[in-house]
Computed example of a mutant assay.
Amino acid sequence: MFSYLAAALPAGASPATRLIALQCALRMNASMRVSLSLGLLRSLRLGGNPSPWQELEQARWLCLTPGRETGEVAAVLLDDALLGQAPTRPDRCHAADWAVRAGCPSRAGVLGPLLQVVSVYLTSHSHPETGQGLNEADRTARECGIQPAELPHVLEQLAALGLLDSWRIAADTEDLGWAMRSPQ
């Protein structure tokens, strides 16, 4: 889904916009409709900010619709390519819930949207048993919506928060290797 979003969203889309787009893509139904509760958005620390929604509408990626309930934001997604990107709805909903937990670990305190996006990305690309991962550094940066030069700074922040045990960008191959911190 990160690869799809990197191609579908404008290059300058904010991390908050990417977080919302990820949740929308994973939670949409077969009619490409989605509703996100305000509680979910608050847990992502995106509750009252209309900017990410406006970015997604300006990119013609979604169109906001009146919510069925007052405690939600509803939209219809406009990119038919999404239907070919995602596994079955139960699997996507499970992944969406997992992404919320992976992006908002309790020991991280108040992660901003950028750190949440990168944390979810690294966790989703890590070996489930060892927590280790390997990927091209420039691909990681592109799929997280940041410039390659920003990646080391973001990784340092994740390490300082205790989410990453270690990371390294190989000088010869420019591959990023990392080890996620094991939950205590």
Rank of each mutant, 00 (worst) to 15 (best):
C24N: 02
A86S: 15
L44M: 05
P183V: 09
W167V: 09
P113D: 05
T70W: 14
P152D: 03
P90H: 01
R107H: 12
A86E: 10
G67T: 11
D175F: 03
G48Q: 11
Q23M: 11
E69L: 08
A160I: 11
H153K: 12
P113H: 07
C93T: 10
R181C: 14
V154F: 06
M1E: 03
L78I: 09
L36F: 00
E143A: 10
E129N: 15
H125D: 01
A102N: 04
A86Y: 08
P52A: 02
G133H: 03
P52T: 03
E55M: 08
L9V: 10
L41N: 00
G145V: 06
E150T: 10
L114W: 05
G162W: 07
E156C: 13
S166Y: 06
L163S: 07
G133I: 07
L77F: 10
L82S: 13
Q58Y: 14
S14A: 14
Q116W: 06
R27S: 15
G112A: 04
L134F: 12
A81I: 01
M1W: 03
R142M: 10
L176T: 06
E55G: 05
E129C: 15
P148N: 09
H94S: 14
L163P: 05
L26N: 01
L38I: 08
G39W: 11
A16C: 03
E69I: 05
T65A: 14
D138P: 01
G39P: 02
S14F: 06
G39S: 13
L164V: 11
L77C: 08
R142T: 13
Q157L: 14
G48T: 13
D172N: 06
C144D: 06
A179W: 02
M1P: 05
Q157Y: 04
P113F: 09
L19G: 07
P105W: 02
C63I: 13
L82P: 04
Y121N: 00
G112Y: 03
L122P: 05
E72W: 02
R33F: 04
G177V: 07
N49S: 12
E174Y: 03
E136A: 08
R181A: 15
E143F: 01
A137G: 03
W61G: 04
L83E: 10
S106Q: 15
G103S: 04
A16D: 02
G133Y: 03
P113L: 07
R45E: 09
H125W: 06
D79K: 12
A137F: 06
Y121Q: 00
